[in-house]
Write a protein that binds this DNA or RNA. Sequence first.
DNA 1: TCGTCACGTGATGATTTCGTGATGAATTGC
DNA 2: GCAATTCATCACGAAATCATCACGTGACGA
Lengths: 253, 253
Amino acid sequence: MAYRILCVEDNPEIGKLLSEQLINAGHACDWVTDGEAALTALYRDTTGPRYDLVMLDLMLPRMDGLEVCRRLRRRDSLTPVLMVTAKAATRDVVEGLEIGADDYVTKPFQLPILLARVQALLRRGQQRASGDDDIGGTPPLVCGPLVIDTDQHRVELDGEPVQLTGKEFALLSLFARHPGHSFCRGELLDRVWGEEFNGYDHTVNTHINRLRNKIEADPARPRFIETVWGVGYRFTSRCDAASPDAGVGGESP
Amino acid sequence: MAYRILCVEDNPEIGKLLSEQLINAGHACDWVTDGEAALTALYRDTTGPRYDLVMLDLMLPRMDGLEVCRRLRRRDSLTPVLMVTAKAATRDVVEGLEIGADDYVTKPFQLPILLARVQALLRRGQQRASGDDDIGGTPPLVCGPLVIDTDQHRVELDGEPVQLTGKEFALLSLFARHPGHSFCRGELLDRVWGEEFNGYDHTVNTHINRLRNKIEADPARPRFIETVWGVGYRFTSRCDAASPDAGVGGESP
DNA sequence: TCGTCACGTGATGATTTCGTGATGAATTGC
DNA sequence: GCAATTCATCACGAAATCATCACGTGACGA
């Protein structure tokens, strides 16, 4: 799938090579040659992040790459930054990473490695980007036997499709994006129903109940959605208890 | 900021070095020495993701590091993986990243760089957990073998989850946030039960008792929650007092 | 118009947690 | 040593919390 990448590189040979390769890999790549142009490009659109990844050289005309990164991070801590530079000293690498880079590659680089690192960053960044309202292009979320495709609004359990209603799907995908986090009922109402909804907390119970009946082998002993007493509910990524003796009424406290 | 890290490394020198350094940096680090143990540790019976980061050597006994990563990714696309290995060939790096690693460091490594990369991954992973919304953000509280995660409303002892009730959890996390401080019963009632509660002081006793039964190996000789005679209770300040045998360490009998 | 479906609410029974009293053990002060 | 506190531990009923079912409503399409 196509991602938007900003390449900041003053060396024309390297810049040309990189943008060609990135476009070749199927991405949309803009290439600028100095720090101020980089910031301009990054902030051109205020409605959302303009790029899914920034490749940043450090020694740049008009504004240092570190400074670009610093300013970017001041406004946007999400867009992944990959520093590509000749500065290979230990303290340079550490400084770059501490300022907010997500990865750091020193020149001369192996092109395949650089591209693989780009892919890894895009993959990771994309998962993060899937907020509560899902935009297209998000890869499915895999949680053990559960596959949740927010894009297609589809859920599979052990390869079998599961039919969920709107609220059930919204609940499950919220849970799956925050495995382990304990949500209280009010929080769930806010995030799934919307803050303007004012109904009863125990509406959540009913929906959790219906959801469990669809995805749990034994709804009384839920494997995915646990009850946190006095708090709310929590999604589990306890994937290993796949099927050894699921459903057998053994009592092992 | 304390995070939970799993270090998979069969070389005892490097494993020791890494886990020491990570603990030194304030994290909770478990160290295993082969691939199967890694998977076991990752998917031990538990709720939620067990670790915030996995450091993975590739050449391992019993199961290849790549295979570990592959299997992990089959069930969990979120936990960040940092490969640390001597395999430095371009195709190795590319393969590792493609399989699902988020970063790849070759041996011999510069320790400061490695630690900076760990920090960068944790930072990114934390945002991933919080996403565009503001969920999460509170790293777990680590007191030696005790890990208290307010976010997930979860407690681990020596890596094993401990089931606590609401009051028990509130008590323990209050204690853990003030190690060494002696709380009298009235103070505990005020801060855990609320000032409007008017019950008996010795209600606290019962809850401390129940709590000890769950987290102390020998409740009669408490390691965490000490009794201060005539005053109240105190959480041990020697948080690093790991249990002698059930530690994070490798397999040194 | 009717049937179907998703959803919210109420009611009921089951489960878990909580507070209290009672009793025995540990500690302190004399 | 001995009495007086103070604490640990256990059991039990009350209260809080949760699971489950049934029903009514409104939306939507046949």
